[in-house]
Design a protein around this nucleic acid. Structure first.
Length: 226
DNA sequence: GCGACAG
DNA sequence: ATCTTGTCGC
């Protein structure tokens, strides 16, 4: 797929924050998602701090049936240190390389990290969405910011994630009794629709099928690069 | 000043 | 993220 927008490569933390403050205004919180999502692409990365390598994976699935349509992985050098709130600058370069390698443009992107549920309302999912111009959802495994009540134990139960008086996401139980995931808007999709999509993508496990597949792929790519 | 802190 | 054994539960 084509990615027109160039991704900024900051050299300092201050520079990275400045970029986020600028790009945050480009996030589209409206529901621009196609009524019928046909394909969904999952994104994830794996690290090898020892060798300073990062592997990224982009895997596209049919929304109904979860059949794998396309998959790409890329291994490159780590270019930015881990900094809470700024890891989009670590993961975005390889993720975009993987996305660019895809032949077809998907209807939706699912990231393993937060979107608006971020200190400056511009987490990885927002960054990915803005740069690609595609609808994007952030699905985090742990809380980053915000407060929330515990959702009911049944699959589908959800409670709002609130930060500074603003609803920045939802805490969603994707399977009965499992630890909930943190869903937030990345770009061009409403929180409600994002939750619906995430639940649809979690037919049997806590995490979306897209994320599970991408996780395996980039992990394998890292091993095979030995 | 003291914790907390996505992956 | 990654390092890691056994172990509780279905």
């Amino acid at each position: 797929m084509d990615i027109v927008t160039a991704h900024d490569r900051p050299n300092t933390v201050a520079e990275a924050i400045e970029i986020q403050e600028t790009l945050r205004g480009l996030v589209d919180r409206g529901d621009r998602c196609p009524q019928e999502i046909v394909t969904v692409t999952g994104l994830d990365v794996a690290y090898d701090e020892e060798r300073g390598l990062i592997a990224a994976a982009a895997v596209t699935l049919e929304a109904s049936g979860f059949r794998v349509v396309e998959k790409r992985t890329v291994v490159s050098g780590i270019s930015f240190p881990y900094e809470p709130g700024l890891f989009a600058f670590r993961e975005l370069p390889p993720l975009l390389d993987a996305l660019r390698a895809l032949e077809h443009t998907p209807d939706l992107l699912v990231c393993d990290g937060h979107g608006l549920a971020h200190p400056r309302r511009f987490g990885l999912a927002c960054h990915v969405g803005v740069v690609t111009g595609l609808p994007a959802i952030g699905v985090g495994k742990t809380r980053f910011i915000g407060e929330h009540d515990e959702p009911g134990r049944e699959r589908g139960a959800r409670t709002p994630l609130v930060d500074d008086g603003e609803v920045v996401g939802a805490v969603v139980r994707t399977q009965d009794g499992v630890k909930p995931v943190y869903v937030s808007v990345g770009h061009k999709i409403s929180l409600d629709n994002a939750c619906r999509q995430v639940l649809r993508l979690c037919p049997a496990f806590r995490q979306p099928e897209t994320t599970r597949l991408a996780d395996r792929l980039c992990r394998d790519a890292l091993k095979e690069s030995l």
